[in-house]
Every structure is written in structure tokens, then in C-alpha cells.
Simulated assay, not measured.
Amino acid sequence: MNLDSVIKFFAPKGMHISDSVRATASEQLTVTDVMAALGMTQADAGIGLAMYLGKAGISPQDKDAAISWLTEYAKLRAPMAVRKAAGKKFSLCMRILARFAFNDYASSAADSYDCPKCHGKGLITKTSMITKSHYTMRLPQFAKTLGQSPSDFEVFRQVKDVDHQLCGKCSGTGKISKRCQCGGTGKTLDRKKSELQGVPVYKECKRCEGRGYSRPKSSVAYRGILSQLDSLPDRTWRYSWKPFYESLVTKCFEEESNAEAQLKKVTRTQDMIEIS
């Protein structure tokens, strides 16, 4: 059993709550077995399980706990150059790095962000000046006698016209998906090999490196640190802070992998028989 199968137990759509089909075999896991397996996984790899549940949006408390643990981990593993640059704001900076690192870890192809063109409204306001006219009075009899026309009594004025149009960048949704051009699959068609072999051949997408979505840029975390350390040079960030930030993101994936390995270990058939 892997971590992806755990999600269905927190939001069941039917009365049959299990990670396998209905069967009478002894290796079928019941709800009690899964809950016991989660408890044992939490005891040995609680941080990784909390990170995954926070990433999946199951538990906001686990998300806060994972960020707090990552903050303490950052305080212990921070390089000396980072400690010196942060100074008295070291703890706050580590909290900011931990939060951005967790958001980087939790991002996926299903995420979206506000459209920068319409600022999430879905509509764009266009203002223009148009010319309108009106007649000051009806054409009097003396004007008709003199051969004047209604246009001689016409007055022109400039009016501001406000027009609301659908945003072309987000098509009126106000959101832009983080999904890559490969459709979130992480694979693209290799045209040369497909023509040679006569069948579709796929390769890893070079734009997203097989992830299916674009990662948040590290410059976003840099701007977050600049809110506290406005004098931090870009060179210091690139050579000291950025590698440490990337190591925090890697640590999140390592803890998730550890939790999944522990869950698979405790849900093996032989282990469940011994526990029962």
C-alpha cells in the first residue's frame, strides 16, 4: 500500500472503504488495518506522513506541524554564511525559507495562480475617449427661413467610455494553471523516433524536466527574505542561501519517501498477519 491510496480513506465515496476490490481473501486490508498501519507509520515516520497529508490538503494541522519541523531542521543545518547574513533575524528567516520550501514541495500540475494581467478578476477594463453630440434646441422657424440645418445647432463633447472585456490570457477565469505545455504528463512526443519506428515514441519534457508543472522560482523565496534582510546581495543568495533552500525542498521529498517505505513495510501481508 502506498501513500496515494491513503487519501481515499479520508474522503470515501461509498461504504466500501478499502484500497482493494471486494474479496474474501485474508490479505484484504480492512479499515482497522489501514488505521493501525497509519498509526505505526506515524510513530516511525511521522514527519513524512504529516508532510504528505499537508501536501494533499487533508490536514492543515499536519501542514503547520511539517513547516514547524522544517524550520527547526533549517536552524540546525543552516550554513555559517547564512547565519551571519541573517543575524538577529535568523529564526524568522528560517521560518520564511521553510514555508517557501514546503510550498515548492507541495506544488503540482493541478495548482493555479492569479492571472497577472487581470489580477484574478477575469475582466480587463479599457478606457477610451469617444465623441458624442447633442442638439441644443429644435430647429426654429427663423432658422428654417434662413436655410439653416439642425447641424448648425449641434454641440460636440468628449466622454470617457469604460468597457469591460474578457481577459485574453486567462480566458476570463482569473486563474492560470501551473500545468506545463505537455499537459501535466511530463512527456512529449519524440517526432524523429516516431517517424523512424512508425509508432508514437515519447520522451521526457524538457520544459518541466518530467514533473508536469513548472516549479516556483527561487527568486520568490529571495523576495521573501528581502522583506526582512533588505541589504542581502543577490550574489550571496545565489551562492549561500539558494543551495540551502534547495536542500530543504529535497528534505521534504526524502521524508515523504521514508514515510511511504514505512507504510509499505507495515502493510505487507506477513506483517499484518503477525500483528493480528
Score class of each variant (00 low, 15 high):
P150N: 04
K89P: 02
G57Q: 05
M94Y: 07
V159S: 06
K203F: 05
E260Y: 00
I225S: 02
T127H: 05
R268N: 14
S231Y: 14
V220R: 05
G122R: 08
V266S: 02
F153K: 06
S231H: 13
R179Y: 01
P200E: 14
F102H: 09
T125F: 07
K89R: 15
D111W: 12
E154Y: 08
T24K: 09
N2G: 07
S91G: 10
D62W: 01
K132H: 11
L70A: 10
R157D: 15
Q42V: 06
C180D: 02
F90H: 09
Q270H: 05
S214K: 11
E274C: 04
K175H: 12
G168Y: 01
F9S: 03
S108K: 07
V249F: 03
R179L: 06
S108G: 12
K175N: 06
V201M: 14
V34T: 08
C205S: 03
F142M: 11
C167H: 07
P116M: 06
G224C: 05
S219W: 04
G184S: 06
F142V: 11
M129F: 09
S214A: 13
A259S: 07
G172F: 04
P150L: 09
H16W: 15
G39S: 15
S231W: 13
D104Q: 12
K206H: 06
V162T: 15
